[in-house]
């Protein structure tokens, strides 16, 4: 049976909110308030260029260069801006360093504030009510669900992002990564390790 012709004689109807978004875009375009080409560019940038690879570069640099790390912890915004990682939701960035004494974890309890220039668009779980509520209430339990078990002597500190301040976690450099180049280190830095819900990969 010719599947296509029978089941989809016409174009597939998108879901209700998609139709409303299309309506908004049409209206705003006709009024000259948005430019569809500019929207495509924005989407392309967030889909392909702006993502955790940027944050991973920053972390790898901090692992390789003591002075860079010092500057980063003192004034992350200007340091990452110098690397070209600036823009929307990156106006004021703070880097918090994991140590054997303290593990850091980031949440936005109000909505989903996140350092876009360094990590891109947050994953679904970061935006969920469940994570936003539980990260503060029971961080160790949430960490365990992400597969992270910390030694009991390591304290967990949760940082609540706002429209004004975005946090990035600087994870501890994994054991066995001595002597690796900055490029090789980048590959060890996962997105979750920079949110604090994961640890960097260990070199194999």
């Amino acid at each position: 049976m010719p599947h296509d012709d029978h089941d989809h004689p016409h174009a597939l109807l998108p879901p209700e909110p998609a139709l409303r978004v299309k309506a908004l875009e049409t209206i705003l375009t006709r009024k000259g308030l948005v430019d569809p080409a500019a929207l495509d560019e924005l989407i392309d940038a967030y889909q392909n260029k702006i993502g955790p690879q940027n944050g991973a570069r920053v972390v790898a640099k901090a692992w390789s260069d003591e002075q860079f790390k010092k500057d980063l912890l003192e004034d992350a915004t200007s340091v990452v801006t110098d690397l070209g990682f600036y823009g929307r939701q990156g106006e004021h960035m703070v880097v918090v360093e994991n140590t054997p004494e303290q593990h850091n974890m980031v949440v936005c309890t109000l909505c989903s504030c996140y350092p876009w220039p360094l990590l891109g668009i947050p994953p679904g779980w970061y935006k969920s009510d469940a994570y936003r509520a539980r990260a503060v209430r029971e961080p160790r339990k949430v960490l365990a669900e992400f597969g992270v078990t910390l030694p009991p002597e390591t304290a967990v500190r949760v940082w609540d992002s706002t429209a004004e301040i975005r946090y990035l976690v600087l994870p501890m450099r994994p054991e066995g990564s001595e002597g690796l180049s900055e490029d090789d280190l980048v590959a060890l830095v996962t997105r979750d390790s920079m949110i604090g819900t994961g640890l960097p990969k260990v070199p194999t």
Binding site: P15, P17, A18, V21, I43, Q47, V186, T204
Partner: peptide, 27 residues
Amino acid sequence: TCVTYTAPEPAFAEPWHAQVFAITVAL
């Protein structure tokens, strides 16, 4: 080392998520 960067999840799960996001950021 043979570690590779794992393919990231798509930034937006649905095209309309991306579209409404982009409209907002552009405005």
